[in-house]
Design a protein around this nucleic acid. Structure first.
Lengths: 200, 200
DNA sequence: AAATGCATGTAACGCGTTACATGATTTT
DNA sequence: AAAATCATGTAACGCGTTACATGCATTT
């Protein structure tokens, strides 16, 4: 019966080791830091925080604001740190791969040649943009060496840079192969026409 | 309210363009072909096939077997091919990234140094093994050039090879960085001890 | 005698996104 | 006047895995 496998509570615990924050802050921080590695929506964040606080992994202080609703500021407890440590001691499990681009390419002969080329070109656009964003993050990390996790953040960042560059290499190779494939087909077709009387 | 985004029906339609098959066959085929790109469990496959057949995207023939239960052989219909083509004409959407290894590394300072090294070493073991499996698949594709999708299968395969090699490069770099980080810490700690009287 | 494989399927459950609700403040 | 931002939260729904059920045949 589908035992729990989600890391959502641990992400929140981990980010709250940086400093106490509200659910809204956590959502913002996820967007600006680990967005390329992990994602959480508010629909997950708020209920998770409540459960974690109820179980004693987090403490919650209400911060009153004029006009705006109260901010619920959560901070990690000793119990929460223990849970985070237990989770970090377990080897990370590989994700189930789900790559829609590759899936569609796998059925390439059923798609149009321009459509497939566009799959790859769009991917190049997307990932080139991400690479540029990683450069910005790189400078942010370099500017904040006071955080004890900074060297690890750098390693995570390097993963993204190396992987995305590899993807771009693949894209170049693939666009060339697609080109060859379509010209090859055209030539074979016109060749068949020209000497169709000689076939078989 | 969470409109449908799953590609499960289309995977099944796509694989059934190769040849008519049963749900069990499809499960086996997924394991042996696109397992590194996409995954489906029987709990998804069987109900999906039923729905697709009920909607006219697939036809179903019962094949009686002695002893064993009947095999339900599904084949794609013209309507099914249209649906597949419509799906292939839409640009693939990038997946939401969820990489537990990188997530745990992000919180590296809260984990033990040996644990983190092990994250990376285990990944190297896993992905090295996958690279070898891809080599086997490579030879299988080369031995079966009669399938019209074979050139595309090769491109998908190349993606895996290039990406995994990039991961292994990152792993080398990261293991070296982790080494430096821990020796640096040890030196700083022993340095502090030796001239603690001089500190601050 | 017990375990594994073939082959089909259903039920339960956890996960995660999206949509919606609220309400004040600030910006356009 | 309308839209966006801050800030919190809930409800509905689809997705996907796991566990279970069945039953015969073959293997250990």
């Amino acid at each position: 019966m589908a035992r729990r496998t989600s890391s959502t509570p641990e992400v929140l615990l981990g980010l709250l080791t940086i400093e106490p924050m509200s659910g809204y802050d956590l959502g913002q921080l996820i967007q600006s830091s680990i967005h390329h590695v992990w994602n959480e929506s508010y629909g997950q964040i708020y209920p998770s925080l409540k459960r974690l606080a109820a179980a004693g992994f987090l403490a919650c202080k209400k911060e009153k604001q004029k006009g705006k609703p109260d901010r619920q500021i959560y901070s990690i407890t000793a119990k929460g740190r223990e849970r985070l440590a237990r989770w970090l001691a377990v080897d990370p499990q590989p994700e189930v791969p789900r790559n829609e681009l590759l899936l569609k390419m796998f059925f390439g002969s059923k798609a149009s040649a321009p459509a497939i080329r566009q799959y790859v070109e769009r991917m190049v656009e997307r990932e080139t943009a991400v690479l540029q964003r990683l450069d910005v993050i790189d400078r942010e990390i370099a500017a904040n060496p006071q955080y004890p996790d900074a060297p690890y953040w750098k390693m995570v960042l390097r993963f993204g840079q190396i992987e995305l560059n590899a993807h771009l290499c693949w894209a170049q190779e693939t666009l060339a192969a697609l080109q060859k494939l379509s010209t090859g087909k055209v030539r074979a077709a016109s060749g068949r026409k020209e000497k169709s009387h000689a076939s078989k």
